[in-house]
């Protein structure tokens, strides 16, 4: 559906996007993950046709008219009503008459603001503004929805509502590009992801594949003063949450050793569990922990 091929972008002398390449299939949620200033928004703006002076190619199999862009900022006219904002964007996408009126009703219902359609946006909470921000981008029923940090600064209820909307978009077969620095959101919502750091896409692919490829399994033990001697060399150990986190390529073997040790010494364990690797751990293992100021 979308091919991004060797895209380079400079701001003055600053090389903010370096040979970025992506391939996004139809009907999936694709996460673009990275710290602030990594180049996510630049890449998103290039895909959304906002930035047009770049090197490389961006190709769509869909017509560009079927793209909806949800910016990071709440880009709404706050002095008019939610309904008037939707009408405004609907008209920009060419909707008129009954089609426009019906679509306004549908979108207000989709974003859970039917009752507040005639209220001015400035009276809305942050979460409601975020939802109307999304509503404006889907007025024309786009096949591809590009979302740039859509959940920044909102309450958990609104965040959950937005997640449900995204799940619904996926059920409807729409493609979503979801840029965020909240990696747990990307892990929860997306099928595939690309890690971007310092303007470079450092890894991309299906989330499960990324985890399998890069994550080192670990176990968490609580209730042991010291680990058994025969565990040495099995992996690295660090203290965490009052217990020990053992990162090892042989987690089941490590668990077995611990259980046998406990049996022998009559120690009752508080916790022993396999730790599921997270996207965030992979990102840090690929990029390091240092600040990106």
């Amino acid at each position: 559906m979308l091919f991004v091929d060797s895209v380079d972008k400079y701001y003055g002398n600053k090389h903010v996007l370096k040979k970025a390449s992506l391939q996004i299939s139809e009907g999936i949620c694709y996460g673009v993950v990275g710290p602030n200033g990594a180049g996510k928004s630049t890449l998103i703006k290039i895909i959304a046709s906002i930035i047009q002076d770049y090197k490389g190619n961006v190709q769509f199999t869909e017509e560009k008219l079927r793209i909806g862009y949800v910016p990071q900022e709440i880009a709404l006219e706050e002095t008019v009503t939610a309904q008037e904002n939707l009408i405004f964007f609907g008209k920009l996408y060419g909707l008129r008459g009954d089609l426009l009126r019906n679509r306004v009703k549908e979108v207000l219902s989709e974003i859970g603001l039917t009752e507040r359609g005639k209220d001015k946006v400035r009276t809305f909470s942050g979460g409601m503004k975020r939802r109307i921000n999304i509503g404006c981008a889907i007025m024309h029923n786009p096949k591809l929805i590009i979302m740039d940090e859509p959940t920044v600064g909102i309450d958990p209820q609104s965040r959950r509502y937005i997640f449900q909307m995204i799940e619904q978009f996926k059920i409807e077969g729409r493609t979503i590009i979801y840029a965020s620095h909240y990696m747990e959101e990307v892990e929860q919502l997306c099928d595939e992801a690309a890690f971007i750091d310092r303007g470079q896409i450092i890894e991309s692919g299906p989330i499960d594949m990324l985890i399998n490829r890069h994550a080192v399994p670990a176990i968490f033990v609580k209730g042991l003063n010291s680990l058994p001697d025969n565990m040495e060399g099995l992996g690295s150990v660090k203290n965490k949450d009052g217990g020990k986190l053992v990162t090892t390529n042989h987690p089941l073997q490590a668990m077995e050793i611990i259980l046998q040790h406990c049996k022998k010494t009559n120690v009752e364990l508080e916790r022993l569990e396999l730790v599921k690797p997270r996207l965030e751990d992979i990102f840090f293992s690929l990029t390091g922990n240092q600040l990106r100021d």
């Binding site: 959304a48 862009y69 910016p71 709440i74 880009a75 006219e77 920009l92 996408y93 060419g94 404006c136």
Partner: peptide, 13 residues
């Protein structure tokens, strides 16, 4: 400053 200009640039207008 509120992102409206960028947003409009992503529309057919």
């Amino acid at each position: 400053n509120i992102g409206m200009v960028s947003r409009i640039a992503s529309t057919p207008l």
